[in-house]
Design a binder for these strands. Structure first.
Lengths: 398, 398
DNA sequence: CCGTTTAAACTCGTGCGACGAGCATAAAGG
DNA sequence: CCTTTATGCTCGTCGCACGAGTTTAAACGG
């Protein structure tokens, strides 16, 4: 008689199998170093359930337990750790000048295993080099590796690079990075992933709606709601730099007019100084901050960029009402170098009722590691699901 | 010994009680008029489970079944309907000129029971009138009423009205609308709720990330992800009109400079025509569209507003990558009246790679009923949860 | 008109995750 | 060394969903 849809997986019941287990694993991710007793309390699990769940997870090599530091009377509890033979994800950060390849266990802390500066910017060469590193890590850890995530300084749609001003790339296919076609390969924009990491582990931890804004070449970032970046329908969300918050007379390389991008990064500072557009706006902007110390004209140009940046951030706050704004890349230093201009523009741009208690605007806590942490996090999101654990359990039983 | 947190509800296990039931109820909401057999297929429930779950829900007055129209051979199935004694929510739409008070069963279709134009705009009088209607509906349905949701043409923070240009209100307390202090009262911005409704039942149904943009007095809207509006940390998200996408020289009544608001609504058209700012930008704008038929100057002014609107929409598409854009309020007519200007500005404002397949920009399908549907929807979201059903079951057993 | 076919509902025994009461255990305190 | 305290373990129970087998209600076909 056969189920019409061809034996659909029983969505409602089968996933009950991992309900408690997933809750425990999530708690391990959220609070590295938690004790078993603590987890049971937080999840309101009976001690019986805790025993059963941890036993099951230990058997599946999903966690290991080590004695916890004694803390008063009573039977000592254990700390829940990733299992030495447990699942891993590979996280790659592909930046303007270099790349890094890391592995993370289910606690989500990426350990960098290989890194190198780009020999050339040629996409094939860059990807070839990274693919080699990924393959080596995969060879080393074998079946423990469950997913690969790549944070790339580029616009990403449907898991593929569409373009990158930073790297000077057009559409580039990254599927070659997967060491095994069966392994999920997740590609994300670096600013988006850095925002996600910031919201989970960084300055925005615990805040429901967080806005991350970063300046590198242009402006990127993401709105993060409950730890999940708002990625849009095709995955290309977070291109805040292409809101027309800048000078409407200027045409952006992206094709649009008036992009915010052009009002805040190194190109803006150069324009204000009457200098030609810098080849590398990032390093130019960094240098400008140094020059500003002794040069009033540079100081003014930096101030104008900070002002344009503050105005846009205010607009985004008006529009999305984040509980915090985290600044990545050049955004923190720019704000620092022209704090008054930034603050004035920010306040002036806020709707009046927001001025009494504006959201804090703080530097990103994870610095340059945000994207890598974010990549590890979304890769683990994929692994720590019913499907992921079913697959792991199946592989592990065999 | 007592649990430290004072007998925390067992999060992980107790809610297993409603797993199947909630899935069935959700399916009823998502597809009004579904049959039991269909639901079972979609959720991959065994017929045994379907029997059990529907029996339980029937006993709790959460659904009733009626014979489905026969469709071929085999034992006929039943249609799942709201139960005549089942839970209800009250949805209120508080608009510029009038208000409506409706009740919705768990299929989410609000039926308007009372409505009236505002006698005066005085907040106390308006709220008093609505509170009376809510009380009458509550008296009529008694314990069936489980939540009240209010869609209001105002900026909302932490469930309270902060200000409203449309109504001419400052901070206004709406808690008086709850007929019973125990009843959840949910207050939301009308454009936000209309966007949510559009994403669930309207033109954006089935699309993961949808952007709703509406023009009334200024611009509002919301980004909706998987049916949930992105409301921000305090609930005041969606104020797109206060992104500085307009003329940076103009000061907005909100306190900020260059707000998009001023570039698109009736105030913009009046300014372009050299006329004084209209007292009611909404009706002024509507009238302008009529005047534009025979008056080239008005036509041009409308075109400029449409252009400014298209440019901003393009920026929002760049920034948030929605799969569709729905236009509410005056936005649809404005686009219709100056389709070329709008389309040109939209395309010109899109990043080049987005131009090949831009998201569709369509008129909202629910028209003026969006906010009411959205209010009913979020009220039901509150009711159809483990807590909500536990409370219902407890009340019902007694 | 009546048996056949078909789709769906009902029955009932089973499995499984979590519960919770009672017991065992490992520390600190006196 | 016994008590106190916090935790882990054992085991019987519960509740939800499963799934195989049975029953039911319609359409079809001679």
């Amino acid at each position: 008689m056969a189920t019409p849809t061809g034996r659909a997986r029983s969505v409602r019941a089968r996933d009950a199998r991992w309900r408690g287990a997933l809750a425990v694993l999530d708690e391990m991710r959220r609070r590295p170093g938690v004790t078993r007793a603590d987890v049971a309390r937080r999840l309101a699990l009976s001690t019986g359930s805790a025993t059963e769940i941890t036993a099951r997870l230990r058997e599946l090599a999903l966690l290991s337990e080590t004695p916890a530091a004694a803390s008063g009377r009573g039977r000592p509890t254990t700390v829940l750790n990733p299992h030495p033979d447990g699942p891993l994800v590979i996280a790659v950060d592909l930046r303007q000048e270099d790349w890094r390849c890391a592995a993370a266990e289910i606690d989500g802390r990426p350990g960098v295993l290989e890194e190198a500066r780009h020999g050339s910017r040629d996409p094939d060469q860059v990807i070839g080099a990274i693919a080699g590193a990924v393959r080596r890590v995969h060879d080393r850890f074998g079946g423990r590796v469950r997913a690969v995530a790549v944070a790339v300084a580029a616009t990403v749609r449907h898991g593929a690079v569409v373009q990158s001003a930073t790297l000077g790339w057009d559409a580039v296919d990254l599927t070659g990075l997967a060491p095994d076609p069966g392994l999920p390969l997740i590609v994300g924009n670096d600013a988006t992933l850095a925002g996600a990491a910031e919201a989970r582990y960084g300055a925005a931890a615990g805040i429901g709606t967080a806005l991350h804004v970063t300046i590198e070449v242009g402006v990127g970032g993401t709105l993060v709601v409950d730890g999940l970046p708002i990625e849009g329908a095709t995955g290309a969300g977070g291109e805040f730099g292409h809101l027309p918050l800048g000078d409407p007379a200027l045409r952006c390389p992206c094709g649009a007019l008036g992009c915010w991008d052009l009002a805040v990064d190194g190109r803006a500072i150069a324009r204000h100084l009457g200098e030609p557009p810098p080849r590398d706006p990032r390093s130019y902007a960094q240098a400008a901050l140094a020059r500003a110390q002794g040069d009033a004209a540079v100081r003014t140009a930096v101030g104008r960029a900070a002002s344009g940046f503050g105005r846009g951030v205010a607009g985004l706050i008006n529009a999305f009402d984040p509980g915090i704004v985290t600044l990545g890349g050049f955004a923190g230093p720019l704000r620092g170098a022209a704090a008054e201009e930034f603050a004035a523009a920010l306040t002036d741009g806020l709707m009046r009722f927001r001025r009494a208690e504006p959201p804090p605007v703080v530097a990103a806590a994870l610095g340059g590691d945000g994207a890598l942490h974010g990549a590890a996090a979304i890769a683990l999101d994929r692994v720590l699901t019913e499907e992921g654990l079913n697959a792991w359990a199946a592989d592990h039983a065999a």
